[in-house]
Simulated scan of single mutants.
Amino acid sequence: MIGEPEIDGDWYAASGSGATAEALPGGPGRERVRRARPPWPWALGGVLAASAVWAGTLAVLDRVPDVPRLAYRHSPDLCKEFDLKTVAQSAGREFEGRQNGEASYPAQDWSYCSISTPYQEETVMYGAQVLVELHKEHDPAAEFATGPGTDPSTRIDIGERQEVQGLGGRAVLDRYYARGGSRLMVLDGGAVFTLTVQWFQPKDGTPGSIDENAMDAAMIEDMRTLMTKLKR
Results as ranks from 00 to 15, higher is better:
Arg34Tyr: 13
Ala36Tyr: 10
Arg37Glu: 14
Pro39Thr: 11
Gly46Met: 06
Val47Trp: 08
Val47Arg: 07
Leu48Gly: 13
Ala49Glu: 03
Ala49Met: 11
Ala49Leu: 15
Ser51Glu: 15
Trp54Val: 10
Ala55Phe: 01
Thr57Pro: 01
Leu58His: 03
Asp62His: 15
Asp62Arg: 09
Arg63Trp: 08
Val67Glu: 00
Arg69Ser: 11
His74Val: 00
Cys79Met: 01
Asp83Cys: 07
Gly92Trp: 06
Gly92Val: 07
Glu94Lys: 14
Gly97Tyr: 08
Gly97Val: 05
Arg98Cys: 12
Arg98Trp: 15
Asn100Ala: 14
Ala103Pro: 03
Ser104Cys: 04
Pro106Met: 14
Pro106Ser: 14
Gln108Phe: 13
Asp109Thr: 05
Tyr112Leu: 15
Cys113His: 04
Ile115Lys: 11
Pro118Arg: 03
Tyr119Thr: 14
Gln120His: 05
Gln120Cys: 06
Val124Gln: 14
Val124Asp: 12
Val124Pro: 08
Tyr126Val: 00
Gly127Phe: 04
Ala128Cys: 00
Gln129Asp: 15
Val130Ser: 12
Leu134Cys: 06
Leu134Ser: 04
Glu143Ser: 12
Glu143Ile: 09
Phe144Val: 03
Ala145Phe: 08
Ala145Leu: 02
Thr146Gly: 01
Gly147Asn: 09
Pro148Cys: 12
Gly149His: 01
Asp151Thr: 12
Pro152Leu: 03
Thr154Asp: 14
Ile158Thr: 11
Ile158Ala: 10
Gly168Met: 00
Ala171Pro: 01
Ala178Val: 00
Ala178Phe: 06
